[in-house]
């Protein structure tokens, strides 16, 4: 018992003395300022197996809450490349349900497996169209009840597009990072980047429409021995 206590004290002392060994979470809320353009209706009548939904289906370019909480924004730390743990990370799941991708926006690490699931009673084709050299375009059919298809990408890329050409309204975008320090805002606009080592960072916020990768919203932050909160506001022009 005494030995364990001693070991714990030594470990804590060591951790405190080595820079970067402390880690904290960065969390916050993404808010959209302004009124985005109206979403467009989606016509799914081309395939009756796509099912029906209580509300007419529309595009999901801006998913905004009543107080401007913005979903599907990607939040990441800049300059962290080369720290990917994707090979050992759990697979991320991209489901196809009611002929729509769920989620529409997701983020993974380089080398991390993406399991594409077909929960629909219809055939989809899963067509990944990367724009960065080194990530390979792939197009595979997936029948109903077929096993998950597995995709992974070796290079970092923002908003790598997945589409189904059978149902031409089906799109998902997967951002690939070469590190684990990223998050995606949920329907309440909330995000968390976990276990960020102590240090100063530049945070990037990207959204397909409100803050494209060519002009992300940025902020300098510092993590120092604990969790921090950083909120961002994007603008619908």
């Amino acid at each position: 018992m005494k030995r364990n206590l001693l070991l714990s004290v030594i470990t804590t002392a060591l951790a405190a003395s080595v820079p970067g060994l402390h880690a904290g979470d960065i969390s916050g809320t993404i808010t959209l300022k302004g009124t985005p353009p109206a979403e467009k209706p989606i016509d799914k009548s081309a395939d009756k197996n796509c099912g029906t939904s209580p509300t007419p289906p529309t595009t999901h370019h801006y998913v905004v809450g009543s107080k401007g909480e913005l979903a599907n924004a990607i939040i990441a730390l800049k300059g962290m490349d080369g720290k990917s743990t994707g090979a050992s990370a759990a697979p991320a799941v991209l489901d196809q349900l009611h002929c729509e991708y769920t989620p529409v926006i997701m983020a993974v690490q380089t080398g991390q497996k993406i399991a594409i699931r077909n929960s629909d009673p219809t055939l989809h084709n899963v067509h990944a169209i990367p724009a960065v050299a080194g990530n390979t375009e792939k197009n595979q059919a997936q029948a109903p009840n077929a096993p998950d298809l597995t995709f992974s990408f070796p290079k970092a890329e923002n908003f790598l597009k997945f589409q189904c050409d059978v149902h031409n309204w089906m799109f998902a975008w997967v951002s690939v990072f070469d590190h684990p320090y990223f998050g995606v805002s949920d329907k309440d606009g909330k995000y968390t980047i976990k276990n960020v080592p102590d240090g100063k960072y530049t945070m990037l916020v990207m959204h397909r429409k409100a803050a494209p990768p060519s002009s992300p919203v940025t902020k300098e932050v510092e993590v120092k021995g604990g969790n921090i909160t950083e909120d961002f506001t994007l603008e619908a022009k």
């Binding site: 353009p37 209706p41 595009t59 370019h61 597009k161 031409n168 309204w169 429409k209 409100a210 494209p212």
Partner: peptide, 10 residues
Amino acid sequence: NQKRMEATAV
């Protein structure tokens, strides 16, 4: 691009 609300060709 920001103002486009594409349903198909995105």
